[in-house]
């Protein structure tokens, strides 16, 4: 197991690099690579990454996200999986070069600076914790994807408004597709955040008699949930502008990144 862990921890970032490289090559010279190659490379990276997570799960007998680095690794896996599913369903590969750098950086960061061997933690071993963290981490992945689509939407909208019909305009899918991807990912993220908050509230009630809203992480989570509630209600009324959803999803990414950085600093400070 240790040997497999050692090997995969090197090969997974390399596989992500190959996948990202394939998208970038297709972006610059479409005729140089078969259209399916980038998605196949992404699939291979996901298989290797899934194997790494499986090995680390087997080594400690619990979900391998007992520290920030492993959470980031899982986030990268979920983001890439979300992207690959979106590309396979929509057959729109043009957003790969924009979406995949983030999971690539997260994987490199987690594999290079995280604990080499997974660390078990009795607190995070409980089924309630699993029920809380699985939706929470998945929600973050979905919201990061949503935020990235939000950025693409806003950039393309700005390009059209400025009448800039350059490479960005030529390469990206239309605004409607970007808005749809942005909203779907935000909706999935919102539902998962809701589930995570619900289970988290039950755990907090059992452990400390209630939710501590002064905890920065919890306050941030509630803020993200409230922000996301606005476009959800807005869409139900049918008059909610796509650009507002895009802006909100970008803001939530900002909050999530701030939250992750805070948690990392707290972890490093012990």
């Amino acid at each position: 197991m240790t040997h497999a862990n050692d090997t995969l921890i090197v090969f997974v970032p390399m596989a992500y690099l190959v996948a990202l490289g394939a998208y970038l090559v297709r972006k610059r010279a479409p005729e140089a690579l078969d259209a399916r190659t980038p998605l196949l490379a992404t699939g291979l990276a996901l298989v290797l990454h899934g194997a790494l997570l499986g090995v680390r799960f087997a080594m400690i007998g619990q979900l391998p996200w007992t520290n920030v680095f492993d959470v980031l690794s899982a986030l990268a896996f979920l983001m890439t999986l979300t992207y690959a599913l979106v590309e396979a369903a929509s057959r729109v590969a043009a957003t790969g070069p924009d979406l995949l750098p983030m999971p690539f950086l997260l994987v490199v960061y987690a594999c290079a600076f995280g604990p080499h061997e997974p660390l078990g933690n009795p607190v995070t071993h409980t089924s309630r914790f699993v029920l809380h963290t699985v939706p929470a981490v998945s929600a973050v992945a979905a919201l990061l994807v949503s935020g990235l689509y939000g950025v693409l939407y806003l950039r393309l909208a700005k390009a059209i408004k400025r009448k800039d019909f350059g490479p960005l305009f030529q390469r990206l899918p239309n605004l409607e597709i970007l808005a749809r991807m942005n909203f779907w990912a935000a909706t999935i993220g919102f539902l998962l955040v809701t589930l995570g908050i619900f289970v988290g509230a039950i755990i907090a009630g059992d452990i400390s008699g209630g939710v501590d809203v002064t905890n920065p992480k919890i306050a941030m989570t509630y803020l993200v949930w409230t922000l996301l509630l606005v476009p959800m209600i807005g869409k139900l009324t049918g008059r909610w502008p796509d650009r507002a959803t895009a802006r909100i999803s970008v803001i939530t990414v900002g909050l999530i990144v701030a939250s992750i950085l805070t948690a990392t600093v707290m972890f490093l400070l012990g």
Partner: peptide, 20 residues
């Protein structure tokens, strides 16, 4: 075109678009 959600383009923009 300055209004939110409104994209206004004219005949010269068509010209730019067709350069490729």
């Amino acid at each position: 075109g300055e209004l939110g959600g409104v994209f206004a383009l004219d005949i010269d923009d068509i010209a730019h678009l067709v350069e490729a």
